[in-house]
Design a binder for these strands. Structure first.
Length: 501
RNA sequence: GACCCGUUGGUCAAGUUGGUUAAGACACCAGCCUUUCACGCUGGUAACGUGGGUCCGAAUCCCGCACGGGUCACCA
């Protein structure tokens, strides 16, 4: 790289951060960090009507949560490039200057066509089997026509005049060589709306140039925009950045681009957070959506990804969203995350109360310390067998409310009545005077001792205990589950089981 | 419809200059471990859309076809 790398993630605040946004932000981040460059956050808010309240704030919040931090942006302005909102840049006349320049050079012109008129034009073209395109009707407009339109009070938009039969070609990091003919671009396109706002294709060029962006990484849905933008770079006499089109994320169920309407897939990063996915897992997973490293390793920390990142390895074909793989990656991260760290993260989820299970746990009325205690004990048992933090929460809720559950004791009948009674009775005697913080090892010793005393072992010893304390003959290490409960609870569970014998 | 892009096992995905026993992961199955479940470990099944070329040799290059997708806004 001869120039200092500068990249940008440029969301429009028309919604909350979804997987596709995060993917785009993430690759820009990896690119910047890998090459020791600068990541810029720019807000493309030129569509006044579609801007969503709190959209920007929420996007920034979840970008930070994921660990995608930018070096420059609305909250970290560099005076040389600020401001970072396109609406503010428009107020400063940044776009107007270049619009005027293009008009005076005859490369852009006013268009007085109304939206209805344009709509009608496109429909007719479609009917005739033509590709919808602007026919250039105002390019050669006469003085009279213009005067008449002005007299009617029509506010014009500004169109960029596309050269005829001109080839635009670029070398894409992901795609390699791509070329378009200017005749297939849909005709002259609008660069300034009649409300004075620049359109995306124009603003993005001006801003990327002024902000000295060296590499533009964006979704593959922008491929067809690229030649239009190149036309503007050319008209303004600027060099265009190196482009990279990130493969789109597909829904395996529909075979189409992940859509906000796909109910079976979580769309928003906030949803992954509240469902108990770790940010490290999401980061790792998304990095593999449209890119892959050289070796066989699947689990990569952020730092490792930054190091391994190579834009040449961006893939061309669509990236399919593999939910099971995500769950597996999340499970890997849960396994290797420190127990207390997991407890803290779960406490955050409980406090946020954004899921049913979080609300249920909250409804227990526990103090923070009590809650942490239950969660910690549960994490010890389940850290290695869950995919999501919410599953640990479900388990914790079960243990916290175990006495309220109707246990299925029918399985007890599969074992010798007298032996089982002796085991349960013996364990009750052994447990009733144990302190609250009795550890799993002690409980294991107690179980073994009771087994020895009454001469019962193996599954005849353990299965009834599984049923008694867990409700199923198959359970995790039953002594560990006992350590979650308080001895008084254990005694009550034993009483219930004995009564059911 | 036009223009671009893509097509490797059930799923995801390596295979940058043509020569590989065509990686790896998830899922699945089996065995081991375990009181059981899960975890873990070991092993296994399984793939180059199609038809033509070029070449000693094609998953890799060329052409056609099929299928899938993206884009054709005063949205970004």
């Amino acid at each position: 790289m001869d120039k200092k790398v500068r990249v940008r993630y440029a969301p429009s605040p028309t919604g909350f951060l979804h997987i596709g946004n995060a993917q785009s932000a993430l690759f820009n981040y990896l690119f910047a960090k890998h090459f020791g460059g600068t990541m810029v956050l720019r807000i493309e808010d030129t569509d006044l009507a579609r801007n969503v309240e709190h959209g920007e704030e929420s996007q920034m919040k979840y970008l930070h949560w994921l660990g995608i931090d930018w070096d420059e942006g609305p909250d970290k302005p560099n005076p040389k490039y600020a401001p970072y909102h396109q609406t503010e840049r428009n107020k400063k006349g940044i776009y107007k200057k270049y619009i005027d320049q293009l008009i005076s050079e005859g490369k852009a012109y006013y268009d007085y066509a109304t939206e209805d008129e344009l709509q009608q034009m496109r429909e007719e073209q479609k009917k005739n089997g033509e590709a919808p395109h602007y026919d250039g009707r105002w390019y050669h407009a006469s003085e009279e026509d213009i005067a008449a339109a002005k007299a009617k009070g029509i506010k014009p938009s500004v169109r960029f005049h596309l050269p005829k039969n001109h080839t635009y070609e670029w070398n894409d990091w992901a795609l390699g060589k791509v070329e378009f003919n200017s005749d297939n671009l849909g005709g002259d396109f609008i660069i300034e709306k009649n409300n004075g706002m620049p359109t995306y294709n124009f603003a993005v060029v001006v801003d990327d140039h002024l902000m000295e962006i060296t590499d533009t990484l964006r979704g593959a849905d922008h491929i067809a925009n690229t030649p239009k933008q190149m036309a503007i770079y050319e008209a303004l006499g600027w060099e265009h950045p190196h482009f990279c089109h990130i493969s789109l994320i597909f829904n395996p169920a529909t075979g189409k681009k992940l859509s906000k309407r796909d109910k079976n897939t979580l769309q928003f990063i906030s949803e992954y957070h509240r469902e108990g996915y770790l940010k490290e897992a999401i980061f790792n997973f998304i990095a593999f959506l449209g890119w892959s490293p050289k070796g066989e390793q699947e689990i990569y920390s952020k730092e490792a990804l930054i190091k391994a990142y190579d834009p040449h390895r961006m893939s061309k074909s669509p990236a399919f969203f593999d939910q099971k793989k995500l769950d597996w990656i999340n499970a890997q991260y849960i396994k290797k995350t420190d127990v207390n760290d997991l407890v803290d993260r779960i406490m955050v989820l409980i406090h946020e109360q954004e899921t049913e299970i979080a609300k249920k746990l909250n409804g227990l009325g526990y103090s923070d310390d009590q809650m942490k205690d239950v969660i910690l004990r549960t994490v010890h048992v389940h850290q290695h067998d869950v995919n999501k933090l919410t599953e640990i929460m479900e388990h914790a809720y079960f243990y916290a409310t175990v006495l309220d559950h109707d246990m299925d004791y029918s399985g007890l009948k599969d074992f010798d009545h007298d032996d089982t009674l002796k085991v349960l009775q013996g364990l009750k005697d052994a447990v009733k005077d144990q302190p609250d913080d009795t550890d799993p090892q002690t409980y294991l010793n107690l179980i073994k001792q009771v087994g020895k005393d009454v001469a019962v072992k193996g599954r005849n010893l353990y299965f009834p205990l599984n049923i008694t304390f867990y409700g199923h003959s198959s359970a995790p290490q039953i002594n560990e589950i006992m350590a979650i409960y308080h001895p008084a609870t254990i005694v009550k569970l034993l009483d219930k089981a004995i009564a059911a014998l």
